[in-house]
Simulated assay, not measured.
Amino acid sequence: MKKIAILADIHGNILALEQVVADFQKRGVDQVVTLGDLISGPLWPRETAQFLMKQSWYQVAGNHDRQLVKKDPSTYGLTDQYTDAIIHQTERDWLRSLPVSRIINDEILLFHGTPQNDSQYLLETVQNGSIFLSSHNEIKTRLDGHSCKIYLCGHTHIPRCVTLADQTLIVNPGSVGLPAYTDDQPEKHRVETGSPCARYAIMEQTNGRWVVELISIPYDHNTAADMARKNNRLEWETWLRTGYAE
């Protein structure tokens, strides 16, 4: 495996996913991985699940995927409520089958948030309403003693490629389907990428070293924003149309 496409946080945005797939197919990747939060969103959760179920990709679950099959539906937020109403048992069974993490090539660990917590940020710290890159020591603590050479994560929707002092490589490809959002955990904050583009990454092994490319590509984001508006999720409409969480 020499060239890997890395996808995360699709959030039911089949339009963005299709454009990403078309892009990496032209680049000749050997394998594809997805890092969770695959279908939850006021867009096209069932269509996205059905597409992903057909793929021979390495896939892991995110916090929203877990919540959809393990939490009491009465506790769902609006996003998971919509998704739960749209998907069928086939999609639920598939979500339930996804592991929370997996290792490939004995050196690359895939997960959503951190290896032990799919709802925790690995590379970012939230403080006083702001989100910023964490220190190496904070990141190492969150890796909780794992000793892989490469970690692939999602959850924050922020594209990053971080190399620790011991040359450990950590890649967050950003979000395929949602370029901005707000959250109140661990405290109220917002995440913004500044454009409506779909994002993913390619990691390629060249001369014994991994080279990472963080990729941002346009897609029909206005149709996705219109779908969010149709489903009465006006904040999602703004996020999808602008990449800002205003």
Score class of each variant (00 low, 15 high):
His221Ile: 10
His189Pro: 01
Ala180Cys: 05
Asp65Asn: 07
Asn172Phe: 00
Ala198Pro: 02
His157Ala: 07
Val211Ala: 05
Pro115Gln: 06
His221Phe: 09
Gly129Lys: 03
Asp184Trp: 03
Asp166Gly: 03
Thr242Ile: 08
Arg233Asn: 15
Lys230Trp: 12
Ser195Thr: 10
Asp80Gln: 13
Val32His: 10
Leu7His: 00
Trp44Gly: 01
Lys188Gln: 13
Pro45His: 07
His64Tyr: 13
Ala198Trp: 00
Asp93Met: 03
Gly41Asp: 04
Ile86Ser: 05
Asp166Met: 10
Tyr181Phe: 15
Tyr121Ile: 06
Leu109Pro: 03
Ile14Arg: 11
Ser119Lys: 11
Pro159His: 01
Asn117Gly: 03
Trp57Asn: 12
Ile158Cys: 05
His11Gly: 03
Ile170Thr: 07
His189Arg: 01
Ile104Met: 07
Val32Gly: 10
Ile158Ser: 13
Arg142Glu: 11
His11Cys: 09
Tyr76Ser: 03
Ile158Gln: 05
Val33Ser: 02
Ile170Ala: 01
Arg199Trp: 06
Thr163Trp: 03
Ser119Leu: 10
Tyr151Asn: 00
Gly113Phe: 01
His189Met: 07
Ile4Leu: 12
Trp236Phe: 15
Ala198Gly: 09
Ala201Cys: 14
Leu133Lys: 12
Gly145Cys: 07
Arg66Ser: 02
Ala201Ile: 11
Gly194Ala: 08
Arg229Leu: 15
Ala180Pro: 05
Lys54Glu: 14
Pro196Ser: 13
Ala165Cys: 02
Thr141Lys: 13
Trp236Ser: 05
Leu38Tyr: 00
Gly28Lys: 08
Ser195Ile: 12
Lys3His: 13
Ser147Glu: 14
Gln167Met: 12
Met203Leu: 15
Gln205Glu: 15
Val21Leu: 12
Leu98Asn: 02
Leu178Lys: 07
Ile158Met: 06
Thr125Lys: 11
Asp72Val: 12
Tyr76Trp: 11
Ile87Lys: 03
Ser119Arg: 12
Gln120Leu: 14
Gly129Tyr: 12
Leu17Asn: 01
Thr156Tyr: 00
Phe132Asp: 13
Val60Met: 00
Asp184Arg: 03
Ala201Met: 08
Leu178Ile: 12
Arg46Gly: 08
Ile10Arg: 02
Val191Tyr: 07
Gly36Asn: 06
Gly154Asp: 00
Ile103Thr: 15
Tyr58His: 15
Leu38Ile: 01
Ala85Gly: 15
Arg92Gln: 11
Val21Ile: 15
Pro159Phe: 05
Gly28Ala: 09
Pro218Phe: 07
Ile104Thr: 08
Ile104Glu: 02
Thr168Val: 14
Val126Trp: 07
Arg190Lys: 14
Arg102Gly: 04
Asn63Gln: 12
Pro179Val: 00
Leu109Ala: 14
Pro99Trp: 07
Ala16Val: 10
Trp57Thr: 08
Thr48Trp: 05
